[in-house]
Design a protein around this nucleic acid. Sequence first.
DNA 1: TGGCTACCGGAACGGCGTTCCGCTTAATCA
DNA 2: TGATTAAGCGGAACGCCGTTCCGGTAGCCA
Lengths: 195, 195
Amino acid sequence: MADTDSGSEQPVPRKRADARRNERALLDAAAAAFVTSGVDVPVRDIAARAGVGVGTIYRHFPTRADLIVAVYRHQIEACAEAGPALLADSDTPHAALAQWIDLFVDFLATKHGLAAALQSDDAAFQTLHTYFLDRLVPVCDQILHAAVAADEIRPDLDAYGLLRGVGNLCIGAGTDPRYDARRLVDLLVAGLRVR
Amino acid sequence: MADTDSGSEQPVPRKRADARRNERALLDAAAAAFVTSGVDVPVRDIAARAGVGVGTIYRHFPTRADLIVAVYRHQIEACAEAGPALLADSDTPHAALAQWIDLFVDFLATKHGLAAALQSDDAAFQTLHTYFLDRLVPVCDQILHAAVAADEIRPDLDAYGLLRGVGNLCIGAGTDPRYDARRLVDLLVAGLRVR
DNA sequence: TGGCTACCGGAACGGCGTTCCGCTTAATCA
DNA sequence: TGATTAAGCGGAACGCCGTTCCGGTAGCCA
């Protein structure tokens, strides 16, 4: 895959020191604000925490989705990369699927409002939706196919549908002690088994 | 249970004619607006459709939840009342459960944004949440217990959790042809079966 | 050190939910 | 039927929020 620049020259000469500092401060402030107030926290709150103006947020992160993705990128990557490893290490593909989905639920359920944002049809969250799908659907698809090939689960659900379903079930997890998203996800995965 | 008024007198003397007319117009306008723009349609839009001022909406329906409940009350009642009937007519409690949940999904999935509103922790939707739970949890509970008693399903999920899970799975149904909420709900119910 | 320009801060704007108050008008009674 | 009264109405006004825009500031380089 060819890069846009042709080799030797540096097309992105490096940002100014204050810009780098502000970006860092914004990421830290956003991460903290997401924890205390959810990913729907007002833009002004994040700006205030970071000690910058609101314009600075939009300059670095044009949409809220860009900021959310930047904050959680490492964790999402880790989840994606864990897929093949689990598939290789587990006794059966179905066990790998269950464990991998557990990872995904652990991630989603602890991010206040993230699961809801993922399903939102608001244009501001388009990037978020796309990033999650691009990164996780192929991984899920791989495990799913392995499980189907091993005759462990029914072949009639694709990775996209499963991930959206799991994401949906995680909405509200952690805000209501009576609602146990993990158990419901377990039941859903159990429903996939051949009988 | 004693009524607040003591028998003969009429404590609610009957509203003025224009008030009754406006309430009717608002219900019709809201129903139409919900169909075209979802239950999150701006209050001003509903007021404009009904040909009234925004103040009139708040006078008749203090919160958005009150308006939504008023619009859908008949359908929710019908769903609730269908529960015992299905339980009596079906071959097995599990079949009744599946059919009843189908009814619930049919209702929810065709109301743009309603499933999301149901799970929202926004205070404006508190009444909505409460009404749905008060009306449907007992019905679901009855069918669930019958199925458990018949040894058809696992006893480890209560009606509240199941209804919330189903409601969550319905979020986004109808907006994305790739997402089939009904199938996921079926898988969830299948996961409940004893094996 | 001086100038260029990337970058910043926050005022300003529009959309929204919600409240409030002066006016309208349905209901009642002489 | 006409006067009285208060229930009810409309929409201006307010505050919150996302987003845009521009005058000013300060890093960077020659």
